[in-house]
Amino acid sequence: MTISQARHIGLPLMNLVRLKAVPILQQLHLEERLLRTSSDNWCIINDGTSAPTIVMGISGKPSELIELEPVLRDRVPVIRRFTGGGTVIVDDGTVFVTFICNKDAIPGLQAYPRPIMSWTSKLYGEVFQGIGDFHLRENDYVFGNCKFGGNAQSITKNRWIHHTSFLWDYDVRNMAYLKPPIRAPKYRSARHHVEFLRPMKDYLPAKSTFIDKTIATIGSHFLVRPVWLEAIGTPNSTYPQSTRLLTKQELEAFVISAS
């Protein structure tokens, strides 16, 4: 199908950026910039991040969400991102998929959290067709009763972002840095991380299989245009980034306040 044919039948254009092991802080800075300064639709797929990193939602409180003393001892980076959602620890076994869209990009989709969540779950339902017992449970992607994908969103006046951390695999030891969330989904039923999570590697032969199926599914809903990271350009140094790395001093202050 040519670009003119795609536009004729009404497929919206989606810029696709594929990354490999880009640090999650750099990825989040890119996402925030594209959400706030671009007028195009974007999908960003990052295969892993360079080092184990804790990522919290914009309103998350470290003292409630992470084990501060082990985190400080082991120098695990902690990021507060610009979107809502829960706390995760990500590493080279995580696959990140992000959609950044104009509110009118998808016909009939209302730009509110639940409709966006429903739309993405239907898209991933196509990706995982015939693979495991995939469905959306509360705000998580699950196989059966076990989570393998966590989501976060932000909605602005004219645009929205939905990003997902997919667990291809995970290091059980890293999960010890996270406290059980106070506001856990009901279906978790107080299960420990190891009982609650299920890696995608149990269902698919390779990460590339998931990434290729995702791109193919996106291609049935959008006109996909690959874009190199270098082509996006570097941000203006004065552009404010609300996503940031928490300092050692900040984390130590939370330890003192919690004691």
Rank of each mutant, 00 (worst) to 15 (best):
I89D: 01
I89S: 01
V90L: 01
V90G: 00
D91E: 09
D91I: 00
G93C: 03
G93E: 00
T94N: 13
T94C: 14
F96E: 03
F96I: 01
V97K: 00
V97M: 03
F99I: 05
F99V: 05
F99A: 09
F99W: 13
I100M: 10
I100H: 07
I100D: 08
I100L: 14
C101W: 03
N102K: 11
N102A: 12
N102Y: 05
K103W: 01
K103L: 05
A105M: 13
A105R: 05
A105L: 08
I106V: 15
P107L: 13
G108T: 02
Q110H: 08
A111V: 02
A111G: 01
A111T: 08
Y112S: 14
Y112R: 14
P113N: 01
P113F: 00
P113R: 00
R114C: 03
R114S: 11
R114E: 14
P115L: 10
P115N: 10
P115D: 11
I116R: 02
I116E: 00
I116F: 03
M117D: 03
M117V: 04
M117P: 00
S118F: 06
W119F: 15
T120Q: 15
T120M: 14
T120W: 12
K122C: 13
L123A: 09
L123F: 06
L123P: 02
G125L: 08
G125R: 04
G125A: 07
G125K: 07
E126F: 12
E126C: 14
E126Q: 15
V127C: 08
Q129F: 09
Q129L: 11
Q129G: 11
G130E: 06
G132K: 07
G132C: 06
G132W: 08
D133T: 10
D133Q: 13
D133M: 10
D133V: 06
F134L: 12
F134W: 04
F134E: 12
L136E: 14
L136G: 11
L136Y: 01
R137V: 15
N139L: 08
D140M: 07
D140I: 03
V142Y: 04
F143V: 08
G144E: 04
G144R: 08
G144P: 06
G144V: 04
